[in-house]
C-alpha cells in the first residue's frame, strides 16, 4: 500500500467533510432574510405549537447563529458545533435534539437496506450467472428483458405499484410504517414478525430493482469468464457441469460483484430516501421528508450532513481495507 494513495484518499475524505459543512453553512446565509425567523413565521402561521415556544426558539437560534458576529467567526463556531456532533434542535419536535432524531431513524434505514441489498445481491448474482451459462440461457431467456426493465425503473416507483397491489387492492401486507402503531418494541417473536411483515414491501421494491442491477453485472462478467483458458481446460478434463459452474465460473465472476456490493453497502444511508417516503418507513429518508414538509430546517441540515459524512466515511474505510483483502487490486493510478 503506497503512502501516497492513503494520503490522497484521506485527503479526499476531509475535502468531502469540508465541502459538506461549508455548503450547509453557506447556502442558508446566501438568503437576504433571516432564515430562522422566516421559517418560524411560516411555521407559526400554520398554528402548530404554542406561541411562547417560538420566541424562545428564535432567541436560542439567534444566539446560535451569532448574526451580529463577523462571518468567519460564525463559520468557525459552526465547525465547532459539527465537531461536537451538535446539530441543533428540531423545530417541529422542540426541544428534541436533531442528533437524537437521526439516531432514532438510522437503525431502521440500516436494517432495511442491509437485508434487502444482500438479498438482491445473492438472487441477482445467481440469476445472472445462470443466464450466461450455455443451455441455461435459452431456459431463462425471458429473464434478460425482465432484468433490464427492473434495473431501469426507479425503485420507489416500483414501490408505489407494490403498495397499491399488495396493500390496498389485495390487502395482505401493511401499507405503511415499520411496525403496528402502538406496539412496544421488544425482542419477542411477535414483534420481530410484525417488523418483518412491515419491511416486506419496501424491501421487495429494493430487491426487485437490485436484482436487475446485480443480474446484468454478473451476466456480463460470466460471459467474459467463460472465454478464459481455464474454462476450456476444465471442459477438456471432462469436469461435471456443476463443478465447472460453481467452482470455476461462478467464483471467479463473483469478485467484481463483491466490489460492487461493498460500494453499495457503503452508500446505504443515501439508498432508500424515496422508498421510505413511499412506505412511510421511519428511517432517515422519511425523517428528511417530514422535515422538508414541516420546514424543519435544522433537521434537514442535520440529515444531509449525517448522510454525506457516513457515506464518505464508509467509502474511505472501504478504499483503505479492500486492497488488503484482494492483492490483485493495485492502487489505481488513473
Amino acid at each position: 500500500m503506497t503512502l501516497g494513495y492513503v494520503a490522497r484518499r484521506i485527503g479526499v475524505f476531509f475535502l468531502v467533510v469540508f465541502f459538506a459543512v461549508s455548503i450547509n453553512f453557506l447556502i442558508p446565509r446566501l438568503r437576504s432574510t433571516n432564515p430562522i425567523e422566516a421559517r418560524m413565521n411560516e411555521f407559526a402561521a400554520t398554528g402548530a405549537g404554542r406561541a411562547g415556544d417560538f420566541h424562545e426558539l428564535i432567541e436560542i437560534y439567534n444566539a446560535k447563529f451569532d448574526f451580529d458576529k463577523p462571518l468567519w467567526q460564525q463559520y468557525l463556531n459552526y465547525w465547532g458545533d459539527v465537531l461536537h456532533f451538535d446539530l441543533g434542535t428540531s423545530i417541529a419536535f422542540y426541544p428534541g435534539k436533531v442528533r437524537d432524531e437521526i439516531m432514532r431513524a438510522a437503525p431502521w434505514t440500516i436494517g432495511l437496506l442491509l437485508v434487502s441489498t444482500l438479498f438482491a445481491f445473492v438472487i441477482g448474482s445467481i440469476l445472472g450467472a445462470l443466464l450466461a451459462w450455455p443451455g441455461m440461457g435459452k431456459l431463462f431467456g425471458i429473464f434478460v428483458p425482465v432484468l433490464m426493465t427492473l434495473s431501469a425503473i426507479p425503485y420507489y416507483l416500483l414501490g408505489l405499484l407494490l403498495v397499491y397491489v399488495f396493500a390496498l387492492v389485495w390487502p395482505v401486507l401493511p401499507s405503511a410504517g415499520a411496525y403496528t402503531s402502538g406496539a412496544r418494541l421488544a425482542l419477542t417473536w411477535p414483534i420481530v414478525g410484525d417488523i418483518g411483515r412491515h419491511a416486506l414491501l419496501p424491501a421487495a421494491s429494493i430487491v426487485l430493482a437490485g436484482i436487475g442491477f446485480w443480474g446484468l453485472g454478473m451476466r456480463a462478467t460470466m460471459v467474459s469468464v467463460m472465454g478464459e483458458d481455464y474454462m476450456t481446460m476444465a471442459n477438456a478434463k471432462g469436469l461435471r457441469d456443476r463443478t465447472m459452474f460453481f467452482h470455476y465460473a461462478f467464483r471467479n465472476a463473483l469478485l467484481p460483484q463483491v466490489t460492487g456490493l461493498a460500494i453499495a453497502l457503503a452508500g446505504i444511508m443515501s439508498g432508500a430516501i424515496l422508498v421510505e417516503i413511499v412506505f412511510g418507513y421511519p428511517g432517515i429518508g422519511f425523517l428528511l421528508y417530514r422535515a422538508i414538509s414541516g420546514n424543519d430546517y435544522f433537521v434537514i441540515q442535520g440529515v444531509v450532513l449525517f448522510v454525506i459524512l457516513s457515506v464518505g466515511l464508509a467509502l474511505l474505510i472501504l478504499d483503505l481495507v479492500y486492497p488488503l483483502l484482494d492483492p490483485r487490486i493495485q492502487f489505481r493510478k488513473t
Binding site: 479526499v12 475524505f13 475535502l15 468531502v16 465541502f19 459538506a20 455548503i23 450547509n24 447556502i27 442558508p28 446566501l30 438568503r31 432564515p35 452508500g267 444511508m269 443515501s270 430516501i273 428528511l288 422538508i292 430546517y297 434537514i300 441540515q301 444531509v304 448522510v307 454525506i308 457515506v311 464518505g312 467509502l315
Partner: peptide
C-alpha cells in the same frame, strides 16, 4: 473524486429547500 463521493441528492436537497 470529492463530488462523486457526495450523494448529490443530498446537496440538491439543501439547495432547493433554501
Amino acid at each position: 473524486d470529492v463530488l462523486l463521493t457526495i450523494p448529490n441528492l443530498m446537496v440538491l436537497v439543501v439547495i432547493t429547500s433554501m
